Amino acid sequence: MKGRLILENGIAFEGNCFGKISDTVGEVVFNTGMTGYQEILTDPSYYGQIVSMTYPLIGNYGINIDDSQSDSPKVRGFIIRERCQEPNNFRCEFDLDMYLKKNNIMAIEGIDTRHLTKLIRNAGTMKGLITTADIENEDINKYFDGFSNKTAVAEVTAKKISTIGEGSHHVGILDFGIKNNIVNSFLYKGCKVTIFPAFTRTDELLKYNLDGIFLSNGPGDPTDLPEVIENLKVLIHKMPVTGICLGVQLIALALGCETTKMKFGHRGCNHPVKDLKTGKVTITSQNHGYMIKEESLTEDIEVTHININDGTIEGIRHKHLPVMGVQYHPEACPGPHDSNIIFDDFVNLYKGAK
């Protein structure tokens, strides 16, 4: 079915819609990964966003249940250059169109995704609408004006407390939209894990005799979570705290730093990051649209990692408290395994405090 992607700046692309045919609006972002589209679709950090894949052919190995990073796709929409209609892989259980239909996700193909990527790179992230209707400009603006992603974390967080694993170290996870493989990474390290809803109060967390707290990835602007930040201001003085992506941004805000929105963010599995202590550069998987402002760092915080491409902060550590975090995704779904050693650092921090 013919359709259009209409951007907030008025530029429109024509293509063919598939998946669940229903108008959808969201923040348009691009991901540079050559593979891993299922992990991207099911990553809760993409909640509220329409994701465009820069790699031209998507769907060639189909979809399977095991590779999902949450219980369902979390993207608002999906944009690709070309869809493979006959996937070929022994693990394939659905094709892309069937999977998106089943989960009510609107998608469009036939778009010049490289042109779209250049537009976003030059103008910055903007809202977009995927539609099959001939909509007037006034109605398009109503779509954009009515879109907000401020409650994204509340939509994707765990609804109840749950515990898995039987390890010797008990890690509490504040779930802002966690990927399954982050939980698995702690289980592989021999940890018992208790997952808490994002807005669980500090006094409730302290009842569980935890060795440390981990702050997960998640969608949206970290400054939209003031109650979480206030809880963390207390928590960082009670036990070790670590975090990934949104988690490290929240740590920074709790420590008195500032965050800011990036022009177009980092999304893909080929981002080089340098460990300032060892000098080693690893290739990392990333998905974030906000960053820690370097000029806002206090004297008690040291930068541990930087992005080679643009020099932005990729990791911090407190000089006196057992508090640290990284901006990239060491669990590598999708992506390389270079950086998963960071989970050893997290667990050693918990062990040291214990």
Rank of each mutant, 00 (worst) to 15 (best):
E109P: 06
G124H: 09
N141L: 13
R4G: 03
I195C: 06
I229C: 09
V171L: 10
K293D: 13
I283H: 06
I79F: 11
V193A: 10
G146A: 10
N16Y: 11
N31S: 13
A123E: 13
L215C: 07
C191M: 08
K274Y: 06
G19W: 02
D344G: 10
S22A: 14
K277W: 03
N307H: 14
D300A: 07
P197G: 06
K354T: 08
V323K: 02
D95F: 00
K280G: 02
K2L: 12
E14I: 00
A332C: 11
P226F: 08
Q85T: 11
K118A: 05
F264R: 05
F199C: 09
I11Y: 09
Q49I: 01
P197K: 00
I316S: 05
D97M: 00
L255H: 08
I316F: 12
D134A: 11
G110Y: 15
Y188R: 14
G190N: 13
L100G: 02
K160W: 05
D97G: 00
I63F: 07
M324F: 05
C257R: 05
H329Q: 10
E302C: 07
G268Y: 05
D175L: 12
L100P: 01
C257K: 08
I58E: 02
H271E: 11
M106Y: 08
R317D: 01
E136T: 13
K280W: 00
E27T: 12
K150S: 14
C84E: 10
Y328R: 02
L129P: 00
G77S: 10
G77Y: 03
S168W: 00
L255M: 15
T163Y: 04
N307K: 04
F13N: 03
M53Q: 10
E294C: 06
I6K: 03
M239P: 00
S185E: 15
V183H: 06
K160G: 08
C245H: 12
K159Q: 15
I178F: 09
K274L: 09
R121N: 04
R83N: 08
D67F: 11
H237E: 06
E299V: 08
S72E: 12
S185D: 12
E204K: 11
E138W: 03
L246E: 05
N64W: 12
S216L: 09
T260N: 01
E230H: 10
I65K: 14
G335P: 01
P240K: 02
A254F: 01
R267K: 02
K192L: 07
F94C: 03
A133I: 00
P222A: 13
V241G: 07
C269K: 03
Y328N: 01
G352K: 15
